[in-house]
Amino acid sequence: MTPLERAAYGLNWQVDHQRRVAVICDALTDYLSNKAGGPGGGDADLCGGVALFLAAIFAHEAGLPLGVAVEGITHKLARMFADIEAKGAMPPHDVKKNMRAATEAACAKLAELYGDETQGPGAGSLSPGQFGILVADYHYSKGSTDELFQRGLTAALEAGAEAWRAQGEGEDEMDQKTDLMLDASLRHWFRLTGRAVRSL
Rank of each mutant, 00 (worst) to 15 (best):
Q176T: 05
G72C: 07
G48F: 14
K96A: 12
E112D: 14
D172I: 08
M90K: 05
F190P: 03
D172H: 05
A69F: 06
L153D: 07
G63S: 01
A36D: 13
E162N: 11
G160A: 00
D45V: 14
Q119K: 12
H60E: 13
G120Q: 02
C107I: 13
V197H: 00
A163S: 02
D26E: 10
D43Y: 05
G168I: 08
I24P: 06
T103A: 13
K109P: 13
Y9W: 11
A27C: 03
L148G: 00
D179C: 01
D26M: 01
Q167W: 09
G120V: 00
D137I: 10
L157E: 12
H17A: 04
D116R: 08
D83S: 12
Q18C: 12
A62H: 03
V135M: 05
F81C: 07
L180R: 01
A108Y: 05
P65C: 08
K96W: 09
D45L: 13
L126T: 12
A69Y: 12
A166I: 09
L113A: 15
V95S: 08
D43L: 09
V23P: 00
A155W: 02
C25S: 11
L134E: 02
K76F: 15
Q167Y: 01
A106Y: 14
Y9A: 14
F149C: 06
A196I: 10
R100G: 11
A166T: 04
D43A: 05
N12H: 00
K109G: 14
M181R: 06
L180N: 04
C25V: 10
D175K: 06
M90V: 03
D183Y: 02
A123M: 04
A59Y: 14
G48S: 15
A86V: 07
V95Y: 00
K35C: 08
G88H: 06
L32I: 09
Y138F: 03
A108I: 10
G10L: 05
H188R: 07
E162C: 10
V50M: 15
G152R: 07
K97P: 13
P65Q: 07
A159K: 08
G67N: 10
L66D: 06
L32P: 13
T29I: 13
F81L: 07
E162W: 13
E147A: 02
A123I: 10
A89K: 04
G124K: 02
D137P: 02
A166Q: 07
C47H: 10
P92E: 09
V15Y: 00
A108H: 03
